[in-house]
Design a protein around this nucleic acid. Structure first.
Length: 424
RNA sequence: GUGGAUGUAGCUCAGUUGGUUAGAGCACCAGGUUGUGGCCCUGGGGGUCGUGGGUUCGAGUCCCAUCUUCCACCCCA
């Protein structure tokens, strides 16, 4: 073999791809029902979009981007997430001039240069949802509820919804400083990791698994105590709306998001049992991002869900995927004369909207039957010189073994009728 | 980027202290007499033993390097 697929990528093969198609189908219906339109942006963007949009200090920008120079010398980056590009497209195409708010969704591959492990890949897929142009806390609640609705529709159970408010540009720096002051006084009690975190991301220290850091974090200032009145009111309103919707949540003061653009509401959904990478979705508000990208002061909120991780959780929880039949009918031939007619007949069936196929390997009738059995085709139409002479086809029900002759001109109708019976 | 484990047919794995043409089950293909699947029987194709070096008379078996995959850390979907 010349080479293999790049590390952390995967080939989604027949057998597996049907699960993706099912997931995508549920997603599209959900988004339509919630009033979202699909947007498709490029897989790659100018690097500065992510540097500015996602944030220079984030791990994504500092060590996880697939960045390269194109032949024109431009710095290009394979998108590591979707929000920045949607905001760019919103501005570039002046969507703020249309009816507000703008509700958009996307699915597709994202790229991050990380070491692969359970639930983490270099090319992975997300469903993302973004709403631009509304501050309404009811929208925050609806966005959270929409994510939970998707999981429910897919049959997922026992998920944990964590929610927090990370404040706004007025109150966040205050908390940050208080936290830094708090931990600076306890620096010697922190693990080496957390000493690094102190400058970069002090909130993370509260999340550390080391016992001594948990000990040191006791009594630390929390985000909720330091929200400014505006942020506090907003957060309380979001929680109230979630209560009204019957969405169960845990307020988690240690929840931070890894991307710089988040303000106010931040949330994350955790699934147990799929390994260390157990976050199957997350999101929040980003009221400063549009302006940061050079646009008007327009608020935004959204989420991103990891499709691989959702599929992983579905499998772990034993969810059964619907398995539509590959073919409606297989056309088997008994001899050379029938073979010539088969080509024409199978085309005719396809034009009738049926999924039909035949043998291409010159196999014996027996081998063709065997093949049809393996494909789990419900019906096999058998054509031989006897049938040709009478203008009929022997139609065999593979589940029961019953077989009867059907006139050629009624074949398509007969198959359609039997297929619809099976579905009922 | 760091740490640990792993790598023999399409898949799951055997392969004894290094010793002749590397095996099994499943899968695939073909047969088991005249035009018929799911069970059974028979036969067949398919492996540069991840890759590259090295030690040795001789390496799938030992040593080194490298890559992949898996798991974890950091972080995230």
């Amino acid at each position: 073999m010349l080479t293999t697929r790049p590390r952390g990528t995967s080939d989604i093969l027949p057998g597996e791809v049907e699960k993706w198609q099912y997931l995508e189908q549920v997603i599209r219906r959900l988004c339509r029902e919630y009033g979202y339109s699909e947007i498709r942006t490029p897989i790659f963007e100018h690097t500065e979009l992510f540097e500015r949009g996602v944030g220079e200090t984030t791990d994504i920008v500092q060590k996880e981007m697939y960045t390269f120079r194109d032949r024109g010398g431009r710095s290009i980056t394979l998108r590591p997430e979707g929000t920045a590009a949607v905001v760019r497209a919103y501005l570039e195409n002046k969507l703020y001039a249309g009816p507000q708010p703008v509700k958009l969704y996307y699915t597709g591959p994202m790229f991050r240069y990380d070491r692969p492990q359970a639930g983490r890949y270099r090319q992975f897929h997300q469903l993302g949802v973004e709403v631009l142009g509304s501050h309404d806390p009811a929208l925050d609640a609806e966005v959270v509820a929409m994510a939970m609705d998707l999981y429910a529709r897919l049959g997922l159970k026992d998920l944990e919804l964590h929610i927090n408010s990370v404040g706004c540009p007025r109150c966040r720096p205050v908390l940050r400083e208080k936290l830094q002051d708090f931990f600076r006084a306890r620096l010697d009690r922190l693990c080496p990791h957390c000493r690094d975190r102190l400058e970069r991301n002090p909130l993370r220290i509260l999340d550390c698994k080391e016992e001594r850091c948990r000990e040191a974090g006791r009594g630390a200032p929390t985000s909720l105590d330091h929200l400014c009145p505006g942020c506090g009111d907003h957060f309380q309103a979001v929680l109230k709306h979630l209560d009204n919707l019957g969405v169960a949540y845990t307020v988690d003061c240690s929840l931070v998001r890894g991307l710089d653009y988040y303000t106010h509401t931040a949330f994350e959904i955790i699934a147990r049992g799929i390994g260390a990478q157990n976050s199957i979705g997350g999101g929040g508000r980003y009221n400063g991002l549009v302006e940061e990208c050079g646009g008007p002061d327009v608020p935004g909120i959204g989420f991103a869900l990891g499709l691989e991780r959702i599929l992983l959780t579905m499998e772990q929880q034993g969810v059964v995927f619907p398995r539509p039949p590959k073919l409606d009918v297989f056309l088997a031939t008994a001899d050379e004369a029938a073979r010539d007619r088969a080509l024409v007949l199978v085309q005719k069936l396809r034009r009738e909207g049926l999924a039909a196929d035949r043998d291409y390997l010159g196999r014996s009738l027996k081998a063709q039957m065997k093949y049809a059995g393996k494909l789990e085709v419900g019906l096999v139409a058998i054509l031989g010189s006897d049938e040709l002479a009478h203008g009929v086809v022997s139609l065999r029900d593979m589940a029961t073994g019953n077989q009867e002759e059907v006139p050629l001109d009624r074949l398509a109708e007969e198959i359609k009728q039997r297929c619809s019976e099976v579905k009922l």
